[in-house]
Design a protein around this nucleic acid. Structure first.
Lengths: 146, 146
DNA sequence: CCGTATCCATTCCGATACTG
DNA sequence: CAGTATCGGAATGGATACGG
C-alpha cells in the first residue's frame, strides 16, 4: 500500500490518526472505557479476529495509549488498561459519540446517551469554549504555530 | 480484506468511523476547516494521490459531510464545502488536536494552538461537562440506551 | 486464557497517463 | 482545473490451526 506515513507529519490530527485511526483501534478503546480489559473479552465483544486484535492492542500499547499491567500486584497474568494518555481521549470519544448519535442514525437504530452515574442526567453537548466560557464556532477560531 | 462493515453496527463510534475514519478523510476535513475547497488545493496541501482524493471526497459527499456547490450562484464550476453535519465535527477536531498536541509531540515538532480570531487567546481545553457546568471524568459517566 | 503462525482474498493507494 | 483509467505492489484482516 505504501501508505503515506502520517506519524511524522507536523499535524496533531495526522499523528493522532496514526495512533487511534485504524479500523478497530477506536472500538477497542471504546471497550476500555466500558471496563473491558481482557483479550478474550475484547474479542467476544467486538467480533474482531484474534490476529487483528493482537496487532491493534500491541500498537496501542507501543504508542502509550494502553498498558499491560498485572491483574493483581505480583501476579503473572496481565491485562490491558488505559494509560493517562488513553484516558484523556475520553472527551474525544464523547464528542464523537454525540456527533454519531445525532447524525448517523436513521431512526431504525436505538440512540444512546452518555449520562452521569450519580443522577442519570445526560451530559451537555461537548463544545469548544473560550477560557471565560463563551461557546466558539469554527469561524471564531483559527490555528497558530507556537 | 472483507473488512467488517461498521456502518450497520448500533454504535455511533463505529458508524462515525465508517464515515470519517479512513486515512485521509480526517485530513481532508481538516483542510476544509482551514478554508480549502478546491480539488487541486486538497491535493497540493495534503500530498495525496488524485485517485485517493477522488474516492474520499466522493464518500464524504455521499455520507453528507461535504457538499458540492457552485463556486458562484449559477456557475458551472463547483467546489467542496462542509455541510452542517460536517461543521459539527468541529469540536471533535479541536478535541483531537488538543490531545495530539499534548501527547504526540516529542519536542522536536512545533506544537500548535487553536486561538480566538478576535483576541488571539487560546481556547480552553475541551471537556465533558454536566448541563450545569461541572467537569466530568470517565468514571463519572456511563452509557444508556434510550 | 492469551495469544502465534500461516495462508489468502480483498482492498488500498501511489504512479502514470489521459480527458474535457 | 478537476478529475478518470489502468496498473501493480503493499498492507489489511479473517480463517484456521497451533502453542504456552
Amino acid at each position: 500500500m505504501k501508505r503515506t506515513r502520517l506519524n511524522r507529519l507536523p499535524c496533531p490530527i495526522a499523528r493522532s490518526m496514526d495512533i487511534i485511526g485504524e479500523w478497530w483501534s477506536l472500538l477497542i478503546l471504546r471497550e476500555c472505557f466500558s471496563g473491558t480489559t481482557r483479550f478474550d473479552d475484547f474479542q467476544k465483544n467486538l467480533g474482531v479476529s484474534k490476529n487483528t486484535l493482537t496487532a491493534r492492542l500491541a500498537k496501542l500499547v507501543k504508542r502509550g495509549v494502553l498498558k499491560r499491567v498485572p491483574v493483581e500486584p505480583g501476579a503473572k497474568r496481565r491485562h490491558y488498561k488505559l494509560t493517562e494518555m488513553g484516558k484523556e481521549l475520553y472527551v474525544v470519544f464523547v464528542a464523537l459519540r454525540q456527533w454519531g448519535d445525532k447524525w448517523t442514525f436513521d431512526g431504525k437504530m436505538p440512540p444512546h446517551a452518555v449520562v452521569e452515574r450519580s443522577n442519570g442526567r445526560a451530559v451537555a453537548p461537548v463544545e469548544v469554549r473560550s477560557t471565560d466560557g463563551r461557546v466558539l464556532k469554527p469561524r471564531d477560531t483559527w490555528l497558530v504555530a507556537l
